[in-house]
Amino acid sequence: MTNRIKELRARENLTQLDLAKLVDVRRETIVFLEKGKYNPSLKLAYDISKIFKSKIEEVFIFDNE
């Protein structure tokens, strides 16, 4: 699974710390998410998508491989 968090975060002018505060996670979690090293729970994916006013599938891109 890949994601567009970094791109959307830059568009919204948010730092990793800001996003972490908004979705109530540690900054480290945002770092791992952006690197694609961690797949979030459905709740976290939903919360992040809500911040960017987008659908989950617009932020997180699922690939079958």
Partner: peptide, 13 residues
């Protein structure tokens, strides 16, 4: 981290 308003425990930790 707590003073900065961040949580100390989340799903990854």
């Amino acid at each position: 981290e707590e003073k900065e308003g961040l949580t100390t425990d989340d799903e990854l930790s």
